[in-house]
Amino acid sequence: MKIVPRRSIERGNANHGWLKTFHTFSFASYFDDEHAQFGCLRVLNEDRVEPHTGFGTHGHREFEIFSYVVAGQLEHRDSMGNLEILKRGDLQMTSTGTGIRHSEKAYGEEQVHFLQIWSMPYKGQLPPTYYTRHFTDEEKKDTWARIVAPAGESGVSDAREASGPAPVHSRLSLYATLLSPSASLPHAFPTDGPGALRKVYVHIVQTSGYNPEAAGGATVRVSGDGASVELREGDGAYIVGEAGKEMKVENAGDRVAEILLFDVE
C-alpha cells in the first residue's frame, strides 16, 4: 500500500475577499501537473463564501458536480429550474451532461463553507439531471456513510430527492464520517473493477477555520499494510492498494474529525 500525503499548505489557495478557497487539484489560475486529478476525481475545492456573495451564473458541461455543505447555507439556482437552499448535511449533485448554467451563493447572514467536487463521467452526452440528499451528523458518527455512488448500482435511487447515496455517472463512491477521538474505521479496497490496484483519496475537512499557512484542529492517522501517515485538517492523502486489502482511518487527536473518503477509478 502506498500513502502519499497532500498537505493543506501545499494546496492552491486564494483569498478574493468574498471567497476564500483551497484547491487540491489544478483549478482556475492554480496549475500543478502533479496534482491535476486522481482517477476520475478532477476537482476538490474547499470554499468559504461571504454573505450576499457567490459564484454568478455560469455554464458547465460533461462534469458531475456536487456540493457538500459543512456550515452555513448555500443557494443553488440553475437553468433546469431548480432553486434550493442547502444547509449542513445536504449534498447537491448536478450531472451537467450536455450543458447547464447555474449559480451558487451564500444565503442568509453567515459565511457558507462547502466542498465543491467534480468528477469526470464515464459516458458523454447525458441529459442534465439534478439530485439532493441529506445526511444527519448522527448518520455519519463513527461510521462510513456512503453519500455518493455510481448510478445504476443496487440501492442507488435516480429520484431527485431520496434516501441513500446520490447517483453519479462516474466510477466513484464517496463516504463521509464524523470520527470521535480514539475511534477508528476500516475500509477495504473494492474488489470489482479492472486491474489489481485500487485508488482512494482521503480528505480531512478544515472545520476549524481558514488559514492558508497551516491547518490546526483534528489529527487523523491513515494506515495499512505497514504504511502510515498522519494528517491534519485540510490535509489529504493519495492511497493506492491491492483490491481486497484493508486500510484504517483513526482519529489520533482530541476532537471530532470530519473526513471524506473517495473510492475512485
Rank of each mutant, 00 (worst) to 15 (best):
L41N: 01
V148T: 02
E109M: 11
W18K: 04
G241F: 03
K87N: 11
D142G: 08
A215R: 11
I147H: 03
L197V: 15
N45T: 01
F25P: 03
R171N: 15
H187V: 13
S29T: 14
A252M: 09
G253Y: 06
H134C: 08
Y130K: 02
L261H: 05
K141S: 11
G72D: 04
V49Q: 00
D90W: 07
L86R: 00
K248G: 01
Q125E: 14
E161D: 09
S103V: 04
S119G: 08
G97E: 06
G234P: 05
S29K: 14
E10Q: 13
E84L: 12
I204L: 13
A159N: 12
Y130N: 03
R11L: 03
P194C: 10
V200W: 12
L74H: 00
W144Y: 08
R146V: 14
E139H: 07
T24Q: 01
F22Y: 15
A196S: 15
L197T: 15
A145K: 08
A243M: 03
K20T: 11
Y107C: 07
E75S: 11
Y68R: 02
L126C: 04
I147M: 05
S182T: 15
H113K: 04
K105N: 12
T21V: 12
H76A: 00
G217R: 00
N251H: 08
F25A: 05
G39A: 06
E46M: 07
H134S: 12
E265T: 12
D158H: 13
G59S: 15
K20G: 05
Y130I: 04
R221D: 09
T177W: 06
R48G: 02
V256R: 09
C40I: 03
F262D: 00
N211V: 08
T98K: 15
D158Q: 15
G193D: 02
S170N: 02
G155I: 07
G244V: 07
E139K: 11
V222G: 06
N251G: 02
L19T: 08
P194T: 15
E139P: 02
K87H: 10
T21N: 04
H169N: 14
Y131R: 02
P194W: 10
R42I: 11
D47I: 03
A145I: 04
E258W: 06
C40S: 05
A28V: 12
V256W: 01
F262S: 03
H203Y: 15
Y238I: 09
P194I: 14
A166S: 13
G234H: 02
V222I: 15
E138T: 13
S170G: 05
V205G: 00
D263R: 10
A188C: 10
A28C: 09
G226P: 04
P194M: 14
H16D: 03
P181F: 04
G236V: 09
V240K: 08
L260V: 10
Q125R: 13
I239N: 00
G152Y: 07
G54D: 02
F31N: 13
T53M: 11
F55Y: 12
Y238W: 13
I65A: 05
S223W: 09
A159S: 14
E50M: 14
E139W: 06
D137Q: 12
L174Q: 12
K140P: 05
N45M: 00
K123Y: 01
L86P: 00
K245T: 15
